[in-house]
Amino acid sequence: MNVIITENYEEMSTRAAEIVCGFLKDNPSSNLGLTTGNTPQGLYERMVRSHWSREINLSKATIFSPEEYLGVGPEDYRSLYKWLDRSILSHCDVKMEQVVRLRGEDPEPQLACERFDQEIAAMGGIDLIVEGLGENGHIGFNEPGSSKESQTRIVALSEETIDYNYKYWNDNVPSYGLTIGMGNILSAKQILLLVSGKHKAKALSQTLQGEITAEVPASFLRLAKQLTVIADREAAELLED
Rank of each mutant, 00 (worst) to 15 (best):
T152I: 02
A61C: 02
A188E: 06
S196V: 07
G197L: 09
I154A: 02
F64I: 08
G104T: 02
L58T: 00
Y176L: 09
Q118K: 15
E97C: 13
N142S: 04
H199V: 05
D127A: 07
E45Y: 03
S59E: 14
R233F: 12
D241Q: 03
E108M: 15
E131P: 08
I230S: 11
P66Y: 02
N2P: 15
E160W: 02
T152S: 00
L204T: 12
F141Q: 03
R222H: 11
E7T: 04
E10N: 06
D106Y: 06
E68S: 06
Q118R: 15
L84D: 01
Y81A: 04
S29F: 11
D163F: 11
P74M: 13
M12S: 08
D93R: 15
W83Y: 01
K225T: 04
E215P: 09
D76K: 15
L89Q: 08
T6V: 08
T6L: 01
C92P: 12
I139F: 05
A121T: 10
P144Y: 03
Y77D: 15
G124R: 14
L32N: 08
V100R: 04
D76E: 13
N38H: 10
G125V: 14
I120C: 08
E97N: 13
R115M: 07
G210W: 05
I139W: 04
G37K: 04
A17M: 12
N2L: 13
E159R: 00
T213E: 00
N170T: 09
T213R: 14
E18Q: 10
R222A: 07
Q190N: 01
L24G: 01
D171Y: 11
L133A: 07
G183S: 03
C21V: 10
G124H: 14
Y168P: 08
R115Q: 03
R15H: 09
Q190L: 05
L32I: 15
T161S: 05
K225W: 11
I126M: 12
E55H: 00
K200V: 08
L111G: 03
E135C: 01
R86K: 11
E240A: 10
L70M: 03
W52R: 14
S158L: 06
I154Y: 10
E108H: 10
H51D: 03
Q206G: 11
S13L: 10
G125I: 14
E55W: 02
A188T: 04
V3F: 01
T39G: 04
Q110N: 11
E234C: 07
V195G: 05
G37S: 14
C92Y: 12
V3E: 15
L157S: 00
L221T: 09
D171G: 04
T35V: 13
D117N: 00
Y44K: 10
S175C: 08
S147F: 07
K202W: 08
D85G: 12
A236S: 05
N142A: 04
R54S: 07
